[in-house]
Design a binder for these strands. Sequence first.
DNA 1: CATGTTTTCTTGACTTATTCCAGATAACTG
DNA 2: CAGTTATCTGGAATAAGTCAAGAAAACATG
Lengths: 165, 165
Amino acid sequence: MHTMVDFETQLRAAGLRVTKQRLTVLDTVDRQPHSDTASILDAVRRTLTSISHQAVYDALSDLTDAGLLRKFQPQGSAALYETRTGDNHHHLACRDCGNVVDVDCTLQEMPCLTPLDDQGYLIDEAEVIYWGSCPSCSTRSQPTPDQDNQQGTSRGERHVPRSNR
Amino acid sequence: MHTMVDFETQLRAAGLRVTKQRLTVLDTVDRQPHSDTASILDAVRRTLTSISHQAVYDALSDLTDAGLLRKFQPQGSAALYETRTGDNHHHLACRDCGNVVDVDCTLQEMPCLTPLDDQGYLIDEAEVIYWGSCPSCSTRSQPTPDQDNQQGTSRGERHVPRSNR
DNA sequence: CATGTTTTCTTGACTTATTCCAGATAACTG
DNA sequence: CAGTTATCTGGAATAAGTCAAGAAAACATG
């Protein structure tokens, strides 16, 4: 959790001007991590009613470049953003509902950075997405009528389920 | 390396009709792995001059569903395809030129399938992309005038370099 | 090999996500 | 407070991919 003051400090530290648009975008992404641009835009407009979509795109991209946001893009989804940066965590995505949750790195610190053979590449990041079914989707389809819980993982908010074709 | 006969067999095994469009798409992807739809379309048209773009999209998606192709989509790039499937290998992508090469899995067989905490998800795939600089791009920018080799990894063919902003 | 059924392909319009551009506006500097 | 420069607005443009209807090609059958 961050505060607006935090964000202001972060912006200045990054050499970016402090605008209400950027503050609001940061706050929005912080409150609903793994959001795509469209839902961020919607949410931001609840505060800043007449912000342009371009300003949101610009903010997301500037903030991502500055390292205040992290951007990732699962197959078939639009780009998603989160404020949790620099800790090399990964993502777990549901093929059915598109819901995404964070998972810490399987190994320790910055680990997966080392493939068996780096072929001369200078590697600076390992991006990992685990694909599968989230608890609610898997109970729904599996004929195993066991756990009937509707886990809190899926806020069922936006994510358009991607038909796999 | 595959042969056209292989592909015909694979198509039949998958219960798909054997068409020259599909055979050509398979052959094309096999010859130039990690290609995007646009360059596949171009290449296919060198053989099948008047194939529609839709037929290529359909073929790619049907073949991917059937498991004859694998699809992945690095940040900022269009979807890429390859014929190497089912071996859980990963990718190494250059941030500068966009070139992509294969890397075998860091751990052994289907390993990375297990994050520390699966949060109730049923995981079926771990998609890993290593990001960095390919040999040619890193020598060009680094002030380390050491290795002057222009490694064979980058065929410098299509991949539009993604401006990071 | 002739025919029927079903899948696949062609054509062409459409949607969605994102970017480009030019002028207006708001942040920081002094 | 004024000047400079970054940022934002508004609107058009582009790229990747999808939808839909009819034509054509595959496969099964007689």
